[in-house]
């Protein structure tokens, strides 16, 4: 069992509690012992980076510092946006000793340990798409997905900018497809799988956001997918909760179930509803579960 610091972020703490619960239940099956960080805050979700960038850097340095204080080398995330914000701040600090010294001085001044021991920020997707995590996943997914057609939706910030993320080719990603296959599902391909779900502007520019959101849902639907899976709770919220709003603009009722990555693997690994909490979804996951039980 490999110990990693676990940063669940805002959504998994609140409106997407099902993601946290499914991740906690899945982790030991893929060889991860999660050390939940308590004294941490929001990463700023790109918004604090744009509103008060120096505060963004310090907030994230504080999270990195508390992760390092656990004596681990990896900070595990379950959200695209947390992953980018933390990795970006981390590279700013690792690549500039003067900047790191100044940030550390400020951290210490408010009672936070200095960020000394480097940690690497990694998304759960990367941990289970290759290496030991992948081998364990193959063994754990014993219940399988019975050939369900699953549309992988990556979202943006786990792929781009690739100089910061860099896990896989941002134009031809393979990790979700590999996991879907390992779980006994059939990945379907469609162009919008690497595009934006619209979430960052879904409140400030809803119409523009919905024009983005419809693409993956419509294309996955046309590709015959039973469900979409995403590694990001913001994409999940957008695709799941805002899906009903597409009806008004298009007159079409999509009802495409949206699964978190941890839930998809969790289903294949035989986790139960008490851990997966599908009842918290806006679009019902029932059709998927019924197909699995059939």
């Amino acid at each position: 069992m490999r110990k990693v610091a676990y940063y669940k972020g805002c959504l998994a703490s609140l409106s997407a509690k099902e993601l946290d619960s499914a991740t906690q239940a899945l982790a030991p099956k893929v060889g991860l012992e999660l050390i939940e960080l308590e004294s941490v805050t929001c990463c700023g979700a790109g918004d604090i980076h744009e509103a008060e960038p120096d505060y963004y850097l310090h907030l994230n340095a504080r999270i990195l510092s508390y992760a390092a204080a656990e004596g681990v080398d990896t900070l595990l995330t379950v959200c695209n946006v947390c992953t980018l914000n933390l990795r970006q701040a981390n590279f700013m600090l690792l690549g500039d000793t003067e900047l790191r010294a100044r940030v550390n001085e400020n951290l210490v001044a408010v009672g936070v340990p200095a960020y000394e021991q480097d940690v690497d920020v990694r998304h759960l997707l990367w941990e289970i798409a290759e290496g030991e995590g992948y081998e364990l996943l193959k063994g754990a997914a014993h219940k399988g997905l019975k050939g369900l057609k699953i549309a992988p939706f990556y979202g943006c910030q786990i792929l781009r900018p690739s100089k910061i993320q860099g896990f896989e080719d941002p134009d031809r990603p393979w990790s979700l497809e590999r996991i879907i296959q390992a779980c006994g599902g059939e990945p379907v391909d469609y162009p919008a799988k690497i595009k934006c779900c619209g979430f960052p502007i879904i409140q400030a520019r809803e119409e523009t956001a919905l024009s983005e959101l419809i693409q993956p849902i419509e294309q996955a639907y046309e590709a015959g997918a039973d469900a979409i899976v995403t590694p990001c709770p913001l994409c999940h919220l957008s695709l799941d909760a805002w899906q009903s709003k597409l009806k008004k603009s298009t007159g079409r009722d999509f009802n495409m179930p949206i699964l978190h990555l941890s839930q998809l693997v969790g289903v294949a690994a035989g986790l139960t509803e008490s851990e997966l909490k599908f009842k918290r979804h806006v679009v019902s996951v029932k059709p998927v579960l019924e197909k699995l039980e059939a």
Binding site: P53, D54, Y55, L57, H58, Q88, M92, G95, D96, L99
Partner: peptide, 19 residues
């Protein structure tokens, strides 16, 4: 951090060298 006055574009520019 607010009192140190590195917000606005300066807060982003300071990380560019490392990135």
């Amino acid at each position: 951090v607010r009192d140190q006055g590195r917000n606005g574009f300066a807060g982003i520019v300071q990380g560019e060298h490392a990135l």
